[in-house]
Structures are given as structure tokens and as C-alpha cells.
């Protein structure tokens, strides 16, 4: 039977962490399942976890009064859900809803932040994985904001 460290190493996001780093990170991880319609993250709530998606799709939403929820982005297997755990004040900046049954590796953010504080090399290794995701999502959001497929494009 595979250990949690072995399992999380199969996820593309952590695939190239060292075995030792995976062992440390795995100490903060558990399997999680979310049924369709369940909110995995809520805007403004403490970012106590982040997730590596294994199965299923997640809608990242923002709620506006009188307009309701608006889907900003959908995420699927191989992708990471929750980036606020690594940036103070550690609060989620959007809602995340399971569009179907979603299975993830869920990481305890408080546990992992403590380990990163104690082991800056581990913190840097994780930062090198999270920052590109942040940049890619920011770039994509900028292009979406251009409304490039609109009539005036």
C-alpha cells in the first residue's frame, strides 16, 4: 500500500519534490472528498487548507450582492486549489464549489506554514511551485479581463 508521501509525489504539482521533502509535506496531508455542490473554500474565511485536486472539477467563484455568484475559473485534476494559505493574512479570496464529486489531497496550512518557517529550504521549494501558478493565473485573469472575444475586440 502506498504511503501518503508516495501518493502526493504522483501529483504533478509536487512531482519533483525530493523524497525527504515529500515525507515532511505528507505529514500535513490527508485525503478529502467533497460531494457536488459542497463549498470547499469560502471567501473571507481563514485559509486553513489548500488542495491538490485528484478527481473532479471545482468552480472558483466570487459573490456580488444583487448579481449572485460568478464563476471566475474552473479547476480540475492536476491543479491546485487555494493559494491564500501562503500569503498573509491567510484568508480565502474566493469561494470554491465542487461541481461534481471532488477528491483531493488536503493540506493543513497551519501545519505546513510552521514546517516552512522551521525549514526555509522547504519553504523555498514550495514557493517555487506556487509562485508560477500565481503568475499564470494572474496573466490569464488579465487576458480574460480584456474581453478579447467581445464585439469591440
Amino acid at each position: 500500500m502506498k504511503t501518503m508521501a508516495g501518493l502526493i509525489r504522483e501529483h504533478p504539482f509536487l512531482a519533483d519534490l525530493t523524497e525527504a521533502e515529500c515525507e515532511v509535506v505528507a505529514g500535513c496531508a490527508k485525503n478529502a472528498v467533497f460531494e457536488p455542490g459542497t463549498y470547499i473554500l469560502r471567501e473571507g474565511q481563514p485559509a486553513n487548507a489548500f488542495h491538490l485536486i485528484r478527481h473532479g472539477r471545482v468552480a472558483v467563484e466570487i459573490y456580488a450582492p444583487r448579481r449572485g455568484s460568478h464563476v471566475l475559473q474552473t479547476l480540475g485534476p492536476g491543479e491546485i486549489l487555494g493559494l491564500s494559505w501562503i500569503v498573509p493574512p491567510y484568508r480565502s479570496t474566493s469561494d470554491a464549489r465542487a461541481m461534481e464529486q471532488v477528491r483531493t489531497f488536503s493540506f493543513d496550512a497551519v501545519c505546513l506554514r510552521e514546517k516552512c518557517e522551521k525549514d526555509p529550504a522547504l519553504g523555498y521549494a514550495l514557493m517555487k511551485r506556487f509562485v508560477p501558478v500565481l503568475v499564470q493565473r494572474m496573466s490569464a485573469a488579465r487576458l480574460q479581463a480584456l474581453d478579447m472575444f467581445g464585439a469591440q475586440a
Binding site: R57, A59, T74, G76, E79
Partner: peptide, 15 residues
Amino acid sequence: NWGGHVGFVTALLAQ
């Protein structure tokens, strides 16, 4: 009613 993907096309390509 949309149950499909939302986001910029490069995000799909990356997967």
C-alpha cells in the same frame, strides 16, 4: 446552466 470549463484557453492547454 454552464457546467463546462471557465477560464482562459491556455489553462486548458497547460493540462
